[in-house]
Design a protein around this nucleic acid. Structure first.
Lengths: 334, 334
DNA sequence: CTGTTAGCGCTTTCAG
DNA sequence: CTGAAAGCGCTAACAG
């Protein structure tokens, strides 16, 4: 267990010099730096996380605060997000942990703050006027929220660009020959922007009402052929409903690859003669969104020093075509 | 941010006395203890996690080391386990974190060890001769493994009692009137113990071959009526196959509540006249298993001081009947 | 550009 | 039964 002191001795410098070489917070002579760096991997030095935290440093650690990690129908989507963040954060040389929290208890948050546990926090499943947002803001701990809530001040967040997602999804399906495309909705009216996109592409939009629940989606799948005989593809930005739909659809003769956050599915059956490619998927890539979010989080940590938070809008509309090799879950693609 | 010093001053004792009141590692006078305890919640003192770790204390924190958290077909099962552990650990007054690790990189483990980050570790997805097991053992960090692997020495683990699970599942289904029960298998032969159980209960065991994959299970569901016309219930200890089966089954008219780690499913359709209760489920309760594992972990942390590890066998065959209200995922039951 | 030093909050000897 | 004091490894003034 080599410490900074061992490194300093070997390199013939003071302990603080070692620290400054590592943190880059002070200009260091080239020769000195090299000797320190050499010493570091000679003795196999690794920084002590607890000591950094205690001394008031910025731990290179990103914490994902999640409630109901696995217990909701949309856990699969959250899972893709978490996977993406883990990889994004790791790529930036940080560590990440998942901090399971209960919604009715702030003590988890307190521990994290009190102990200077985390260089930054990613919040998921944020509710209206979430207390965690207030606590983190007030303690000046860098954080970003996945999704948006009104809390009375501005903060960093990441969200999907729904219009863009629709645009890409619809045009993709159009290109494949679909003309009548179902879109899942709850009660809310169809946005004008979506109508415009459909009009531009000259596709017929068929509204499909459902609850954004697993069961809601499954129900759609069940009645689908009867209820929407002319619809050949379907688009959904409702996470739970999309999952329910795709899970159930398989059994109703709608050959659909399971995927995370399916937003657009070609539902033609696998017929060789058909001119429209069968079983293709356009997926909203939750993983990629999350991965960029991870990197962004790290950037905030490194630049902001908890002093100022600026509103950042990161619209991610990355869509991919997985073809027929879609995986069960939102795994990292090579 | 009250510290131990604030508490000491208010209570009129020394700082170390406060520590010993908290840790119980020294006899403390009743009057003194009371004053200290009062002072503690008067100033709202919370221990600083980083300081404890640095000073060589035992952080009241359990770390779950998991690779491929969300990316495998059986993530839902792992999820139920994680949920259970989180709750079990919390009930014991500890915190828990999930430490996502990559399989090919030990640096995550090093950080954890080096910084005395964790009072104890729960390992999941352990592979043959897993290096993490060796590292943790050698560093004398308390840990328990979910599942078993041969590593050349004995360690704490938790596993299912398969025989017991089969016994309870089969007798439950028998009680409901089933006489012909399918059991999912991969290539391995049916164990003698299982045959014996079936014989005792006088139920007809029907072997169902499959891969332990999502797709394997889905396939079974598809052909089920044709292939096994007389089978009215099914038992599976294959996690991924069970999930694939239940996901797909819905669409094939097999009304089955989605559940985590389904091991036994009554597949009769919902007919009011039928004497056998419809849509009931016997589930192997992954959540409960994990929850007890969490408590057990905490016990190890508190008793062992990392000095001796004794082999502990915890056989859990807890099965529950969720009736028709089964949730989508292995959520905590009130 | 580099070194010295005083903490961060807690644990744990060593003294009473 | 209780107190004093020496660290744990690192950060960040403060001094050159």
């Amino acid at each position: 267990m080599a410490t900074r002191a061992d490194v300093a001795k070997l390199a013939g410098v003071s302990e603080s010099t070692v620290s400054y070489v590592l943190s880059g917070k002070r200009p260091i002579g080239d020769a000195t730096r090299r000797r320190v760096l050499d010493a570091i991997d000679q003795v196999g030095y690794k920084s002590n996380y607890a000591a950094t935290a205690l001394a008031g440093g910025k731990p290179r650690m990103v914490t994902m605060m999640i409630s109901n990690l696995f217990s909701t129908p949309s856990s699969r989507i959250v899972g893709a997000l978490v996977d993406g963040i883990v990889d994004g954060v790791r790529d930036s040389g940080f560590h990440s942990v998942i901090w399971p929290v209960t919604e009715d208890d702030d003590s988890d948050v307190d521990l994290l703050i009190k102990s200077n546990f985390s260089g930054g926090v990613i919040l998921m499943n944020v509710k209206e006027n979430d207390q965690r947002v207030h606590r983190l803001h007030q303690e000046k701990i860098p954080f970003v929220v996945l999704g948006r809530t009104d809390v009375g001040f501005s903060y960093n967040y990441v969200d999907r660009d729904f219009d863009e997602v629709y645009r890409i999804a619809l045009s993709h399906l159009k290109d494949q020959g679909h003309t009548s495309i179902g879109v899942m909705f709850t009660d809310n009216p169809v946005r004008d922007s979506l109508k415009k996109i459909a009009a531009q592409l000259k596709v017929n939009l068929v509204r499909i009402n459902t609850q954004d629940t697993f069961e809601g989606g499954a129900q759609i799948a069940k009645d689908f052929r009867k209820s929407f005989p002319h619809v050949t593809a379907i688009v959904s930005l409702l996470d739970a409903a999309a999952i329910g739909f795709t899970n159930a659809a398989e059994g109703y003769g709608l050959a659909i690859p399971r995927d995370v956050s399916i937003i657009a599915v070609n539902m033609l059956e696998n017929q060789a003669e058909n001119s429209i490619p069968p079983i293709t998927t356009v997926a909203f890539n939750a993983y990629e969104l999350a991965k960029s979010c991870g990197s962004m989080m790290v950037e905030i940590i490194e630049s902001d020093k908890g002093k100022k938070l600026h509103k950042t809008q990161l619209w991610v509309g990355d869509l991919i075509d997985r073809g027929s090799t879609a995986q069960y879950s939102g795994r990292k693609r090579s």
